[in-house]
Simulated scan of single mutants.
Amino acid sequence: MKYNLTGEGYEVVTAKDGDEAIEKARRTQPDLVVLDVMMPRKTGVEVCQILRAQAAFKDTLIIFLTAVNDDGSQIRGLETGADDYLTKPVSPKVFISRVNALFRRLNKTEVKTLEMENIKIDPERFMVQVDGNDIVLAKKEFELLYLLAQKPGRVFLRNEILNQVWGNDVIVGDRTIDVHIRKIRQKLGIDCVTTVKGVGYKFEL
């Protein structure tokens, strides 16, 4: 993978275990981190959690590339903030295409702060304020809320949410969306996300 990424013009830094990955990530500030679930010293999920907890890595793309393909591991990887989860075997061409697609999607993202009544959503800081109080959401929780809040009152279908927040190449179940919606409601302490039974979700105050 290093050989193929380098051939595409990417500068690649490798690490032999989770601790070294964190240390090198802090030192080099990469645009993309590729993790395996099973790694020495710290697992890929632990590394992902540690990096996502730091403001310096809020915009860093994180991909799991692993032979671990059970649903539970995929859900944990995505819920800790990964942008994609690929299971081996995967061809270098497919892997490169997924990386390039993530960067294209990231570069197309329009960033603007949303302010409505008692809530402010700031995508630059990945921060939400409710009645002036800062609320910290996980990366995917924030992206889901931001997607819904950009068009208040509009019902977003489940498949639409999966495609826009997790990407149409990532396989996750409806339960993943439900878990993220529940956490958003709990953290914000206000009922701003409405469930449209059998259809999807909408943002309204």
Rank of each mutant, 00 (worst) to 15 (best):
L144I: 05
I96H: 02
A67I: 06
K88V: 02
D131G: 01
A82L: 03
V172I: 15
L157R: 13
N163C: 00
Y85I: 02
D122G: 05
Q129R: 13
P123Q: 08
P123M: 06
T60F: 03
T176H: 02
N69H: 13
R76L: 07
F64N: 05
F156Y: 15
K120T: 15
L106D: 03
V94E: 10
D122K: 03
S91W: 08
L61R: 04
N118Y: 03
T80R: 08
K58W: 03
G173I: 06
K151C: 00
Y85T: 02
N69Y: 08
N133D: 10
S97Y: 11
D84V: 02
D59A: 01
K112N: 13
I177V: 14
E117A: 14
L137C: 09
K93D: 12
E115K: 15
L65V: 10
R125A: 12
D174K: 13
V165E: 07
N168I: 09
D84M: 08
Y85G: 02
L114H: 05
K58R: 15
D71L: 11
E124N: 13
G72S: 09
D169H: 15
V155Y: 05
R175Q: 10
I121G: 06
G153V: 02
D70V: 01
D131E: 15
P92Y: 12
I96W: 03
F57P: 03
I96C: 12
D178C: 00
L148R: 07
M116L: 13
P152C: 08
V68M: 14
D134L: 05
I181E: 04
R175Y: 09
W166D: 00
F142R: 07
F126A: 03
V128Y: 09
R125E: 15
K88Q: 13
E110C: 00
T87G: 03
K108D: 14
R98Y: 13
D71P: 00
F156P: 01
R175D: 09
I119G: 04
L137W: 11
G167A: 06
E160I: 06
T66I: 04
R158I: 08
Q150S: 12
T80S: 15
K93L: 12
A67Q: 10
I121M: 09
F156T: 02
D59M: 01
M116H: 10
L144D: 02
Q164V: 00
S73K: 10
D134W: 01
R76K: 15
L145Y: 08
